[in-house]
Amino acid sequence: MRSSFRARHPWLVFLTRRLGRFVVSMAVVVTAAFAMVHALPGDPVRAALGLRASPETIRATREQLGLDDPLWLQYVDYVRGLLHLDLGISLDSQTPVREVMAQLVPATVKLGLAAFVVCIVIAIPVGLLIGIATRDGRGRTVHLGFGGLTGLALSVPDYLLSVGLVFVFSVSLGALPVAGMTGAASFVLPVIALVVGPGAYLARIVRAETQGVLSEDYIRTARAKRLPARVVYLRHALPNTLTPTLTVCGMILASMLAGTVLVESVFAWPGIGAELVDSVLVKDYPMVQAVALFFGAGILLINLVVDVAIAAFDPRSTIKES
């Protein structure tokens, strides 16, 4: 009976299972964020407030954070707080973490999304065109040149690229702002720094997939039907590269989130990545917890969206059965 239910409602079964996995993963992330504080060596409050804090302040802070309660109660309170979007008070600035996050998240999301869109808009067409140019082993020179360029782009990490870009465009040419978020021009350098590596990776994957798909029998069929080249490539080849491309896009978005940490630090971007670095250094752990949850939820959500998109758009997809 179960198998017939599964056969009749593949979508329902798939979505239930996939959402279930998301919830479990999210629970793991939440628990890990909670456990992190208790894994800290010594007294986290003492570590955060420093050696010169008075015992009274320490005691008051411990009480405020509920650190003297039994562990299970702390966990329950913590989860209950999360459900009410109560993320605690920052030890560093003494303001509610939620308010700090509300200020910082938009800057990071804007930067990440801008970089992601630029990456996709450039890398996918480039990969497709190079894939077409190198089909059936054609264009050895193009292939080598492309491999070398993307290899170079992949080996320069975003933070070093940021420094180089600052030197060339801000210090030497004085053309673009060196730091901060001050309008459209201030996006240019951080976006380039975030795009180059992931963009090269995506273009490589799309090229390899395109080249592979173009040697498939059904492309020969399409050519035998004498369809115009545009139709062969866009209608017959492109959709068949979709699944790996979507998977890589998800990975790229996740890696861009991580990339913001370093890039934001170089460009003094008022975002969550730069804040994470500062918070970890001063051991402002409610803040670190919140950032961990933000990144964790973001990455899990991206993976969820990618899986659902693959199941929805690729008729061959077996993801629903797994």
């Binding site: 989130l257 991580a258 990339g259 961990a292 990455i299």
Partner: peptide, 13 residues
């Protein structure tokens, strides 16, 4: 699924 640098930052704490 989590980028290494992010993990490392949290662990660094």
């Amino acid at each position: 699924a989590f980028p290494g640098l992010l993990l490392a930052l949290f662990l660094a704490m």
